[in-house]
Design a protein around this nucleic acid. Structure first.
Ligand code: FES
Ligand code: FES
Lengths: 166, 166
DNA sequence: TCGGTCTCCGACTAATTCAGTCGGATATAC
DNA sequence: GTATATCCGACTGAATTAGTCGGAGACCGA
């Protein structure tokens, strides 16, 4: 349900740590794994993918490790997600051009759904790792949803009781 | 990877059909299933959930069926998603208040991630079934959030432009 | 040169989630 | 009363996802 995988979660966690490193410093996969209590091998694999996507650079040998391959403000979380999870798709239809959607030709929901997908992607591509760390120190003006859908009681549109901020 | 489940896809499909019905008309689960080539029993279950969330109203007996319980423009797709898929969560941390996140207390990515989650939810709650049908025939007129997050710099975001080739 | 530490990579298994099925109950129109 | 409809929960199988394992190659320091 619109959720990122655990791997992405781990990846972002590790990246946010790398962001804080000084110039020339590197953190090994194991080091990061211990720091965040993530299975070492799993984190290693995630880092490999990030390295292949040129988000992170690997340094072999002892005293080696990983470091960001570019400034944090140039790394969008969209790129991180696609590096770790592969093909992003909001619905089955948005995957390709709808080739895999068989007899649903009269489907009316494809275009609007694709549009939403694009919106989300755009939004994710505008947020960088740099933002992540800033918001760490400052209070985030966020109000999440309070509850999910409620069973047929009130006629008031429940939706998500969250307010918009900026 | 940020995708909706097939069930939600089916549900939206069925709802978009119900939107086109005239006052007093109803469509049965089987009818809808055949129309869109969806397994009958599966669609029936989906409709049940929508009914429980008061998105759709059921009429028992022969010549019965389903119809929208309120105007299409008052049904957001966010409510549809949460009705069908249950708890929406962008990351594992956003599920509850972070209770299930054990030793990741020093995690720096929770707040910004929650923020993104809220953004997406907000966006989804602003789009209604009415928009869905409009956009079918016309070019998309929707002016949702024009800007997601402040880009901080004019840096062009890579999006999916990672080059794994050397 | 040598050995230990590290990244690198693919294939494998286990766990969880999702899709789809089935059987039976109740309500209603004819 | 019967046929057709919703309704509900529990079940199985399929597909993802999470996590594991083993080995190859790179680098540093002794
Ligand atoms: S469900 Fe695939 S095109 Fe609409
Ligand atoms: S990963 Fe759960 S609080 Fe950050």
């Amino acid at each position: 349900m619109l959720s990122l995988s655990k791997k992405t979660d781990y990846g972002l966690l590790a990246l946010s740590h790398l962001t804080k490193l000084k110039e020339g410093e590197a953190a090994s996969a194991r080091e990061l794994a211990i720091e965040f209590a993530i299975p070492t091998e799993l984190l290693a694999k995630i880092m490999q993918r990030l390295a292949r996507a040129d988000i992170v650079r690997s340094i072999s040998g002892p005293s080696g490790g990983y470091r960001l391959s570019r400034p944090a403000k140039e790394i969008s979380i969209a790129s991180v997600i696609s590096a770790i999870e592969g093909t992003p798709a909001f619905t089955q239809c948005t995957k390709s051009d709808g080739t895999d959607c068989d007899q649903l030709t009269r489907c009316t929901i494809r275009k609007p759904l694709a549009h939403i997908h694009a919106k989300i992607l755009q939004m994710l591509s505008l947020i960088t790792l740099a933002e992540f760390d800033e918001s760490d120190s400052t209070t985030y003006p966020v109000v999440l949803m309070s509850q999910a859908a409620k069973p047929r009681t009130t006629t008031v549109m429940p939706l998500y009781g969250h307010k918009n901020e900026d």
